[in-house]
Nucleic acid binder design. Structure first.
Length: 192
DNA sequence: ATGAAGATGAAT
DNA sequence: TTCATCTTCATC
């Protein structure tokens, strides 16, 4: 059985609403630590909740660049959150990575998180950045080169994807796009 | 210079 | 449900 294909930057040059569900079940490694993506959220630039909605600023500049790059931002003054930039350059749309099922580098993740329970390592956007060691230093890095390694979901086992409203969003949004691996114990929250 | 809000997480 | 914590950005 062939090793799953690496995701090219071209993979992200599509609508966020197409990329987001395709990322569920894919593998995200950072410096050889990570696991299966089980939860994401799509942020289109026309969405009032998107960081790019109000135009370009120093913080969100990477979102306005070409697809296939990492957009990292500080959340609530404490946590880091990781996004993948999508769509054509200038679209300023991205997918937020919200949760992983840890498969590789468990010890490194436990050390960084100060926890043992695998379900608590990457079950949230801030948690997974802490577990993988992703910080603002990695903002703007390409996703098809080290330290990133992204592998496509194996097509023979179609992931059952759940769809629901996003987390922590109060602004009115036309598209409540949260995608998750149905029944996964590694989600940041249950769907429903 | 100042202040309010925020794509969270952990404890209560 | 509360709060820690601090950057970002708009406003003064």
């Amino acid at each position: 059985m062939p090793r799953p294909a690496r995701l090219s930057r071209n993979f992200f040059a599509r609508s966020v609403h197409a990329v987001a569900p395709d990322l569920v079940g894919a593998t995200l490694l950072f410096d050889r630590v990570g696991g299966i993506i089980v939860e994401v959220e799509a942020y289109h630039h026309t969405d009032p909740a998107a960081h790019s909605y109000g135009g370009q600023t120093p913080r969100n500049a990477v979102m306005f660049g070409p697809p296939g790059y990492a957009y990292v931002y500080r959340s609530y003054g404490i946590h880091w959150c990781l996004n993948f930039v999508c769509e054509a350059e200038g679209s300023a749309s991205a997918v937020l990575i919200r949760a992983l099922g840890p498969t590789e580098g468990l010890e490194a993740m436990r050390r960084r998180r100060g926890l043992d329970d695998p379900r608590a390592l990457c079950s949230g956007p801030g948690k997974l950045c802490q577990a993988l060691g992703v910080t603002i230093m990695h903002n703007g890095l390409p996703l098809d080169r080290a330290p990133f390694e992204l592998r496509a979901r194996s097509s023979d086992v179609p992931a059952e994807t759940a769809i629901g409203p996003r987390i922590g969003i109060t602004k009115a949004a036309e598209h409540p796009w949260r995608y998750g691996l149905k029944g996964s114990p590694f989600l940041s929250r249950r769907f429903g």
